[in-house]
């Protein structure tokens, strides 16, 4: 299966989504990412029992904070799929890319450039 997905996406591998912390998500935005999504296993199928459930809560908290600071929580999302769902992975990548495109760039990116200039 040689599925294509948008090359704007940078994949960060983690052993389990339970490893993803709020601060990782926030720092991505601080550094200029326009969107972040976390792809975990199906709920109930976590190899470490609760890793993806923890990730879900952290994603929700990151969204709350991003709303508060004016970046917009909708730029973060969590997806659950099994490792056998290659086509769905590509599908999600497309959907997310379109969603973020529609939202426009991370607002602090421009301001950062302006401040630097």
């Amino acid at each position: 299966m040689r599925l294509r997905y948008p090359d704007t996406i940078r994949i960060v591998r983690v052993p389990c989504t339970g490893k993803v912390d709020i601060v990782h998500i926030l720092r991505s935005f601080e550094k200029g990412a326009d969107g972040v999504y976390v792809v975990g296993c199906m709920e109930g199928d976590c190899r470490y029992n609760r890793g993806n459930l923890r990730a879900r809560k952290r994603v929700a908290e990151a969204r709350r904070i991003l709303d508060l600071v004016g970046i917009g929580g909708e730029r973060v999302q969590m997806f659950n799929l099994s490792s056998a769902e290659g086509p769905r992975f590509a599908q999600i990548a497309l959907e997310m890319t379109e969603k973020i495109r529609a939202l426009g760039p991370n607002p602090i990116k421009e301001k950062k450039n302006k401040m630097a200039a």
């Binding site: 601060v23 926030l26 720092r27 970046i71």
Partner: peptide
Amino acid sequence: KKEVGVLASALRMYFMNQGKD
């Protein structure tokens, strides 16, 4: 340390978004 990281990052983004250095 974790909460410091989260708060600091959130504050940095907030002020950057406000155009404040």
